[in-house]
Design a protein around this nucleic acid. Structure first.
Lengths: 168, 168
DNA sequence: ACGTTATAGTTCAATGATTGAACCTACTGC
DNA sequence: GCAGTAGGTTCAATCATTGAACTATAACGT
């Protein structure tokens, strides 16, 4: 998959990336979410190498994001579905898609429009704080050292800096 | 950077990933956001190869996510800061971090806690619809073919399926 | 004047991941 | 009994990533 693993990092972002952080995984998850649940469909839609798709699907299954189930016997055929963890990833991918619409839009316009069924509007995802309900901006957030922050790769320098800043 | 480029795909998610979709970029962006703005600090904190860090920083600058500025002359020294596009990416990374906290938590506990300053609470980011304000779940969203959806890699099979579904 | 330290990189060989194409296996439908 | 479908494997060639050593510029201490 890669040479360096993020799994050992004491960092939740790194651990998320360990599961879905490679080039193809987010697109695979999106495809499955949108109903492209079969091997050949995904391979054709994305143009990904079939052996790599095998590896990625297996990794996502191990990561608990998707599950592989037989949709028929004789001959046995499998498809892929999102798990609960995978479904909770979807809004994040939608937010990233919206970011791409805004900052890296293709000239031809968006290829897919997303509708929010409860209100019937074009979906414009915002990230909000579940406590106060306000939109979260980068400048509204402060980072503090947490219980697991220590001198390991991933947050080595960072943990020290945050501790310094917290004292000051 | 990789063998296949996502830049040509008519897909906003793929275009986002083209900019920030490789292994290290999200962590680099987080580090810069948290105040680790200098080359050596980032290299040490993440344990990334220095030549690769050079490539990634350059790519992120070209993608408009960060900017490189001289913070002193004699000797000329540079640091990195988020652009507006980069800052809008931060809440998405925080949401991904929260996902990791929930679904892939390290045993030691979180290394970093995030506080939402306006309300003073531990930040629990949610993705909401900006039209109705409700939390967005995967099942609340429908995908429809958009103006730019056509037979190119990335949405080939998908565009066809969505068009079929829309007719039905 | 001299060596040490700091910062932001570059260069290079070795190793590992990704690609694309061809192949495999079990079964169906004609 | 032969083409077609589905979900993969296998393999060589190519490309990306790693890790370590090196460079350049300048301040600082003695």
């Amino acid at each position: 998959m890669k040479k360096v693993s993020f799994a050992e990092m004491r960092c939740s972002l790194a651990r998320s990336l360990e599961i879905i952080g490679d080039w193809w995984s987010p697109l695979i998850i999106r495809d499955i979410y949108l109903g492209l649940v079969r091997f050949d469909d995904i391979a054709l839609n994305l143009g990904i190498s079939r052996n790599l798709l095998t590896l990625r699907l297996r990794h996502l299954v191990e990561g608990g994001v998707i599950k592989r189930t037989a949709y028929q016997k004789r001959p046995v055929r499998f498809d892929y579905q999102l798990t609960e963890a995978g479904e909770e990833l979807v809004p994040i991918l939608l937010a990233l898609t919206a970011w791409g619409d805004h900052w890296a839009q293709p000239e031809e316009g968006q290829p897919i429009r997303f509708l929010h069924k409860p209100c019937g509007c074009k979906l414009m995802p915002k990230i909000t704080c579940s406590a106060c309900g306000k939109t979260v901006a980068a400048s509204d957030v402060t980072a503090l050292p947490g219980p697991g922050g220590a001198a390991r790769a991933g947050t080595m320098v960072l943990a020290k800096r945050l501790a310094q800043a917290a004292r000051a």
